[in-house]
Nucleic acid binder design. Structure first.
Length: 571
RNA sequence: GCCCUCGUAGCUCAGUGGAUAGAGCAUCGGUUUCCUAAACCGGGGGUCACAAGUUCGAAUCUUGUCGGGGGCGCCA
């Protein structure tokens, strides 16, 4: 394969093929042994010969020099043996023109692959509890889940995003019992109903922990709800309706849409068939009045299907929902973006369904995330998402005023401030591996400097600014054959590796792969930007750099969109 | 008690078998008659919790110890 035949593989893959061919190896085996050289002066990429040495019996340093001798005539890169390593230096014009051709050629499909073609992934995320305000804690599942959805779609999967609202359960018993205690008619409160319900919930859930008599009352109210008692249902509907309206406002501001809102209540009347199924298969039994499914063979505690009063549990409804999703969508995977504290429950869910012969447990994937600690406002209370976004936007607005640049460009300051503030907040939740616990720090989460969302948006805005000033130019990747510098080559290499990072992110259900990649890309851009002028340089060079920048802009923009951050054109 | 997870620079984190362990923040110094300084360049700062083991080679794999967090049938 020669230079001009390279259509949609990265220079990295091309290089792997060139090394693999004479060795009679699959290119993938070479890719696995690629590494970053410790110092960029050694090369752009290095190949480790250790595992090949194990196979062939030849010492690593001999292999390195043997291979390098066979690759002397390749024009796209040069190789230099260094002990057991083979250091590879790409030819800058080749890399620049290739990366630009690939990315601009793909247009809005840049980074898209067909790996998931024909496969459906059902993803459960956000799933807030009704009757509780939407806090910063819930932002994590929402933002991570929404990003995974976009990444999976980019990888070709059909994605069904489901909001599994916590709209059923004993918590409603607590609220209803509390309302009875205080003789409050919720439906007469109109728009204040939600706030009142939350007040009641906070007050009485604390009470229920130390007062068993009250807890019994709450349980009996929930039992009435499950028996469709009209009074109970009426209050429940009022609370559900007003909560859902609030949530939808927030989702819409963040650009998030769900395919389905299917809360726990939706599965309530489907739980009896779950009970029947486990009973028919002889897998469930009564224990101290409750119905359980033992899971000893999985080394797990039993899962409870009913309480001793016969009412269902979270786990029952979870099983019902899994059965529903399986039959409704025929999915490749059922993905759950839910906190790590619930890991055991998902292991039980996998085990119970596998034991019942319904699925292999690998079909259920718990993409867990670490929980947030130390999350409180300076007053010491729960941080409400709306307040948080507002504070972020207000800080961004101050910055915009200081800069005066966005104003000059005629951007809407409120809209822009929101995009930047939200960019900081969202990126703060996506920049680290999702499994990490988060030490919440208000000021750090709202920072606009360093490894932040606004840093990425800023890089994007600067490119946009240059392109605006440049006006029309000839879009032609081959112009980039005139680019020779180290900074341009590094930027092009980064651009070229976008698709493989998207793919990795989708395989690991891990948005931070994209986040980290974008930080590196923006860093390469900034370094380039400060060492080379674009406008008012030699015309050929300028045209070439404009092409390179356009490719970089496209990549930043695609990447930011995958994270749910708006790639703003002005800052 | 049992199970899971984390422990890397002052702080927040990258880095899952290979070259002198990286980044951001903070700190110190430099860059603005130059496409936006929300940026860039450089300095200082680490016995990768500890111990043993596997390996030619370990921050990375195994075991143990210590420390943080989480979970363990009628909450979700």
């Amino acid at each position: 394969m020669a230079f001009h035949e390279l259509k949609d593989i990265s220079v990295r893959e091309y290089c792997a093929q060139k090394i693999a061919e004479p060795l009679g190896l699959p290119a993938g085996e070479v890719t696995q042994n690629f590494a970053e050289p410790p110092d960029s002066s050694l090369g752009d990429l290095s190949f480790k010969t250790f595992s090949l040495s194990k196979k062939t019996g030849k010492p690593p340093h001999v292999l390195a020099s043997d291979i390098s001798r066979g690759l002397k005539d390749i024009e796209e890169f040069s190789v230099e043996p260094a002990g057991p390593y083979l250091n590879i230096s790409f030819n800058a014009p080749f890399v620049c023109s290739h990366a630009v051709r690939r990315s601009l050629g793909a247009g809005s499909f840049w980074g898209v692959s067909d790996k998931g073609k024909g496969k459906t992934i059902v993803i459960d995320y956000s799933s807030p509890n009704i009757a509780k305000p939407f806090g910063v804690g819930h932002l994590r599942s929402t933002v991570i889940g929404a990003s995974i959805c976009r990444i999976l779609r980019h990888t070709g999967y059909d994605v069904v995003g489901i909001n599994h609202l916590g709209d059923w359960g004993t918590q409603f018993g607590i609220i209803l019992a509390g309302l009875e205690e205080e003789k409050i008619d919720l439906s007469s409160l109109g728009s204040g109903a939600l706030r009142k319900a939350y007040e009641i919930y906070v007050k009485y859930s604390a009470l229920s922990k130390e007062n068993p008599a009250f807890m019994d009352k709450a349980r009996s109210w929930f039992s009435r709800l499950e028996k469709k008692d009209p009074d109970a249902l009426k209050f429940w509907e009022t609370i559900r309706e007003s909560s859902l309206n609030e949530f939808k406002k927030t989702y819409s501001r963040l650009g998030i849409e769900f395919e389905r809102y299917l809360g726990e209540s939706f599965y309530f009347d489907k739980t009896s068939s779950v009970l029947d199924m486990f009973a028919e298969k002889n897998l469930s039994k009564k224990d101290q009045g409750a119905t359980i499914v033992p899971l000893e063979e999985y080394g797990l505690p039993p899962v409870l299907l009913t309480k001793s009063d016969g009412s269902t549990l979270y786990s029952t409804r979870e099983i019902a929902s899994a059965l529903y999703r399986l039959s409704e969508f025929n999915p490749f995977k059922l993905l759950y973006v839910v906190g790590i504290p619930q890991e055991l429950h998902f292991k039980q869910l996998q085990a119970a369904l596998e034991k019942a012969g319904i699925i292999d447990k690998e079909k259920i994937v718990h993409a867990g995330f670490g929980h947030i600690q130390g999350m409180s406002s300076r007053k010491g209370n729960l941080v409400f998402l709306e307040d948080f976004l507002e504070e972020a936007a207000s800080r961004a607005k101050t910055k915009i005023r200081e800069g005066e640049h966005a104003q000059a460009e005629g951007a809407d300051p409120d809209e822009l401030a929101f995009s930047i503030g939200a960019g900081a907040v969202i990126f703060n939740d996506l920049k680290n591996k999702r499994t990490r616990d988060v030490d919440f720090d208000w000021d750090r989460a709202l920072s606009f400097e360093g490894e932040t969302g606004p840093y990425l948006q800023y890089a994007h805005a600067r490119i946009c600014s240059i392109l605006r000033k440049a006006g029309d130019f000839r879009e032609d990747p081959s112009l980039c054959l005139s680019l020779e510098s180290q900074e341009e080559k590094r930027l092009a290499l980064a651009i070229d590796s976008f698709p493989e990072h998207v793919l990795k992110a989708s395989e690991e259900y891990e948005p931070s792969v994209v986040s980290r990649y974008l930080l590196a890309l923006a860093g390469d851009f900034s370094t380039f930007y400060h060492s080379h002028r674009v406008l008012s340089s030699d015309n050929t060079i300028m045209q070439a750099r404009l092409n390179l920048l356009k490719a970089c802009k496209s990549t930043l923009s695609q990447g930011l969109s995958l994270l749910g951050i708006k790639p703003v054109e002005v800052m």
